[in-house]
Design a protein around this nucleic acid. Structure first.
Lengths: 236, 236
DNA sequence: ACAAAAGTGTTCTAGTTACACCCATGG
DNA sequence: CCATGGGTGTAACTAGAACACTTTTGT
């Protein structure tokens, strides 16, 4: 019953890492349409030197998995205060050429405020990349990204996680753009707004977003009101 | 780029295990109603000696996670040929008193044919336990079981995994019993049968199950027909 | 003959989809 | 003044929910 290295080190074992798929949503401005981005690191050492990879790293002993994910994320990309959710654990023996390494993958969603800050930070080489262009990644990170996208798309429909990708205040148009971009197909404007309104989890702030055209009302997601709802009651 | 122990052993790291939540469904006979069971092991050593626990054990180096789960399952309970799906990875630093141990949990679904064989096998102490009575388990296995149940309930609705809990041939009544037991509430018989029929993934075998009352037609799940369906088209 | 499970249709309701026009603003 | 996105209502359709009786079989 004594905790200790005796037992801990007796057998060889796989190494344990965390990898984080960080999604960011860039609202469309004039010219550029809305984009779903993923945050990638350019590796500066072998294996896969020069290849792009998901941020991540080794889990310390006595370190919580989620804590390790947040730590690596901040160390490598300066991103903090994110929605974080465990995705899946990847453990195929050949996935890391250095030896058997099992990786617990997480999905993080960040607000656009955090995007521009990245370039100015001490982040080594973190770059926002449109998801369609995020291919040929190191290790099995293509597979991890694909899995993360599938999860994001599935969960967006029945959990209010989309708001973690938008600024505190947003227009209904921006919310719809996010859904259309992430889901990959268009939605009917009137039906979309109808459903959003019926749910009653958005409160108008009274402010307006002024743009190149007619200004739009700003809304805020009301988590308290959402929590008061039945589970299952959120459905876009 | 050389794979090897040099890098592999440099740092202390959490140990890695797999744990498996094995669900079994016992159709109701005269007297006893239908039951959803979990397969538990009685621990014969510290920590948690004498307590019940989920089957599981350490992942070998260069061993695939799913392979490790299947191996441990067979070693400890003689159960083979099961539906297996990764559930979640539990890594709170205090979950194992021997030291930091991260566990990748799996859910397995087995057919009732395998139930009675267990007692006669070399399985140490594997016992089928109704889920409501599976409390006070070792480690954080109460939490793992709770998570597994939530997943089973959620997934039963939109994926055809329920058939992995039934014998090859089954009656519609048994299928409905399974759904009612797992979901924890009653379903309308006519609507249930209507939906099942509309899906068109069950084929009648022509045979009848003879019981204490009117005999019932037997069906078989047709996986080929299911695969031909759209995803999302399965919805009970 | 009776107890118990098998089997079968219809109606009503609620939710989802499809669809087109006017409005406000900035350039 | 015009281009662009903001904002609004209704009708048709479809899917889901509610509901009761007859049939078969073993005891």
């Amino acid at each position: 019953m004594t905790p200790g290295p005796l037992y801990t080190y007796r057998w060889p074992r796989p190494a344990l890492t965390v990898d984080i798929v960080v999604f960011g949503f860039a609202a469309g401005h004039a010219g550029s349409g809305p984009r779903l981005d993923v945050l990638l690191i350019e590796r500066d050492q072998a294996p896969f030197e020069g290849r792009r990879a998901l941020p991540g790293g080794f889990v310390g002993e006595h370190e919580d998995l989620e804590a390790a994910a947040l730590r690596e994320l901040e160390e490598e990309t300066s991103v903090r205060d994110v929605y974080l959710e465990q995705l899946y654990t990847f453990g195929a023996p050949g996935r890391d050429p250095r030896g058997h390494t099992v990786s617990v993958a997480y999905v993080a969603l960040v607000r656009p405020i955090d995007h521009p800050a990245l370039a100015a930070s001490d982040a080594r080489r973190a770059v926002w990349t449109p998801v369609e262009e995020a291919t040929d990644l190191a290790f099995d990170h293509d597979l991890i990204l694909k899995t993360a996208l599938a999860r994001l798309r599935a969960k967006l429909r029945y959990r209010p996680i989309g708001f973690s990708l938008l600024p505190d205040e947003f227009t209904l148009g921006e919310l719809q753009d996010l859904y259309e971009t992430a889901l990959g197909h268009e939605l009917d404007k009137r039906n979309f707004r109808k459903r959003v309104e019926q749910m009653g989890v958005l409160v108008p702030t009274g402010a307006k977003r002024r743009g190149p055209h007619r200004s739009a009302a700003l809304y805020r997601f009301d988590r308290a009101r959402y929590d008061a709802l039945d589970v299952e009651a959120f459905d876009l």
